[in-house]
Simulated assay, not measured.
Amino acid sequence: MHPSLPSIFYDFSSTALGVSAIFSVLFFYAVVKMFGFGDSNQFAVEGKTVVITGGSEGMGKAVACQLAEKGANIVIVARTLQKLQESIEAVRGSATNASKQRFHYISADLTNPEECERIISEVTEWNDGMPPDIVWCCAGYCTPGYFIETPIRTLKDQMDTVYWTAANTAHAVLRKWLVPINPSHQRPLPRRHLIFTCSTLAFVPIAGYAPYSPAKAAMRSLSDTLNQEIEIYNGSRASKERARATPADVKIHTVFPMGILSPGFDNEQLIKPALTKQLEAADKPQTPKEVARIAIEAIERGEYLITTMFVGNLMKGSALGPSPRNSWIRDTFTGWLSNLVFLQVVPDLRKQAFTWGKNNGVPTA
């Protein structure tokens, strides 16, 4: 007998056992999904009051219309009064029961934290003294460009309109939601949801988005931090003492679309560097309705970090780090695949940028 045969045999057996275990888990996962176990709707919105910032156009408007179709009461927030007035009629027209559902709009500048507090107070008064059940942050726009070619004022404006509009809104509503009460004096309320709209650029930066990507990365970091911090308040409801606890559990979600066909996207294309368009060739823009539908379905499944297409999912897989997983099986395998793919992708992005500079010289303002 060959002396090394036993060790080879045991190595092979261990490998085969590991592969069998993986396939068994995957098979079990597939069966669970096939028969719908654990697929109860975790984002039932009928009769709930939803605030959507950036709700006058694009993805925000699509989200408002689709949640109205599911029976929600909708409040849309944006700066431009005329757009709000036009959009609220479209939202009302999408309602499943317009005679019972309620609709409202508020014009506000979300870069001002006091305005965000005013919004939540106004919605609470409009909602018979109850704060909104769901807040979805869709406000913001992109001003692409190279870092040193972009004025400092524009860099600051992008952080204000992308990150701070979301952070200000989150701060205002969480301060309202997380006021402790004596649970014996009030019946438990349904779970509340805070939803951020981010971008896959928070996972994989692309040359030409220097004004925009850092703000989205900051939003992703805020989301991850709040995802942990919120458990302090959720945990208060499970305390044996329960003398003071928050009135409802809160769940955080963040959506990471790629390109979205909208007036904002059209404006981006006019000023976007040609190299940026080349580097993001794999991004096939989706309609606002498509992105809204995919995001809502994922929230209904209880997902935390949500992408809206396969390429975006690969980008997420490459950068999950310590973020919570939607599915430890699916996200782990996606992460392995993404890490292999991006061994080639990242050097290729840098090579394309180098070649562009070699052929065209430095960018001109």
Rank of each mutant, 00 (worst) to 15 (best):
T254N: 07
T254D: 05
F256Y: 13
F256C: 09
F256W: 03
P257F: 03
M258V: 12
M258E: 15
M258C: 11
G259D: 09
G259L: 08
L261G: 00
S262M: 03
P263R: 03
P263Q: 08
G264Y: 00
D266L: 08
D266I: 05
Q269F: 00
I271Q: 05
I271T: 04
K272H: 11
A274Q: 15
A274C: 12
A274S: 15
A274E: 15
A274M: 05
L275N: 06
Q278G: 09
Q278W: 06
L279G: 02
A282N: 12
D283M: 03
P285Y: 04
P288Q: 06
K289C: 10
K289D: 15
V291Y: 02
V291E: 00
A292E: 08
R293G: 06
R293K: 14
I294E: 14
E297A: 12
E297H: 09
A298Y: 07
I299S: 00
E300Y: 09
E303D: 14
E303I: 13
Y304E: 08
Y304M: 07
L305W: 13
L305C: 15
I306T: 04
I306Q: 02
I306H: 07
T307G: 04
T307N: 03
T307I: 04
T307L: 09
T308Y: 01
T308K: 09
T308A: 06
